[in-house]
């Protein structure tokens, strides 16, 4: 399997373990990732909060670069980037907007690239094929946390169910784990307020963590660097506001699968978390 790859800024910095685990499992699963040349930041929440044209132009350049490179399908592990790229692609179906953005970019853009998230890539790869390569079943009871950006807006992303999504749960079951039925799968963790309003992030992430812990989850499984860093790096702030401080780890779906495929914890970046991972 060959596929284009857009890591995004987080995966080269504060969430490099996500990158490491994506690359590690791709290697074991024989998935060839081709990084987009000279990619730029998608603009994240900052761009669309401040200026609509900027918020479309930044992702459009990324996709234009991918098109130039001849890629037809690109996996975007970061949920925030995935969302921005998909929404931009949708918005640029509008003729006037596309014209304006082409003017700004001075690059051809035709919007033909298939943007998928990491769960879709693994689904495409095939549950049976993954199962065949499992060497150490991931025998843990976990809570799959999807957050906002993977599933909403449903009308544009058309991915999984809008409430109580199942795709990540299915993957965990494929590699030998069990998942809990819980209430905060798609509630917001506080997203981009990590630095500016840490107090609100602590409150929202706290609700999520408490529900998962109450229902006996050994770990939270995520597919978004923002969710991961809020729930992991902000644990100190979270534990100050919730009734029962918690030390359950928050790992990426790719790390969980990596463990099941027998990849070394260090190679998967599991040592980089703030909350110690002992799975």
């Amino acid at each position: 399997m060959k596929i284009g790859f857009y890591p995004g800024c987080s995966l080269t910095g504060s969430s490099r373990e996500y990158n490491e685990s994506v690359v590690a499992i791709a290697k074991v699963l024989d998935i060839e990732l081709t990084e987009i040349n000279d990619w730029n930041c998608c603009g994240a929440t900052a761009a669309h909060s401040m200026n609509e044209e900027l918020s479309m132009s930044l992702p459009a350049r990324i996709m234009a670069m991918a098109e130039k490179q001849g890629l037809t399908e690109v996996v975007v592990p970061c949920a925030a980037c995935y969302n921005r790229l998909k929404v931009t692609q949708h918005d640029l179906k509008d003729e006037t907007k596309r014209k304006r953005v082409s003017e700004i970019l001075q690059l051809p853009y035709d919007g033909s690239i298939e943007i998928i998230n990491v769960l879709q890539m693994l689904e495409k790869y095939g549950a049976e094929n993954i199962k065949a390569k499992v060497t150490q079943p991931f025998a843990h009871k976990v809570a799959c946390y999807y957050g906002c950006l993977l599933v909403r807006p449903h009308s544009i992303l058309q991915f999984d169910r809008v409430e109580d999504p199942q795709s990540m749960d299915e993957l965990i079951k494929v590699v030998g784990g069990t998942t809990i039925d819980w209430a905060f799968k798609t509630e917001c963790c506080g997203g981009g307020f990590s630095v500016s309003r840490t107090d609100l992030v602590a409150k929202l992430s706290g609700n999520i963590l408490e529900d998962a812990a109450d229902r006996g989850a050994e770990a939270l499984i995520v597919a978004c660097p923002m969710c991961q860093s809020n729930l992991d790096m902000r644990r100190g702030a979270i534990n100050k506001v919730i009734e029962r401080p918690s030390d359950i780890p928050v790992i990426y779906i790719t790390q969980a699968i990596g463990l099941a495929l027998g990849i070394d914890a260090k190679e998967l970046g599991l040592k980089r978390h703030f909350v110690t991972v002992e799975l």
């Binding site: 987080s10 080269t12 603009g43 994240a44 900052a46 630095v195």
Partner: peptide, 15 residues
């Protein structure tokens, strides 16, 4: 925060 973020990517292209 948003301004700092955008300033950071404006000159380098990446965060």
């Amino acid at each position: 925060f948003h301004r700092s973020f955008l300033d950071s990517i404006k000159y380098t292209g990446r965060l």
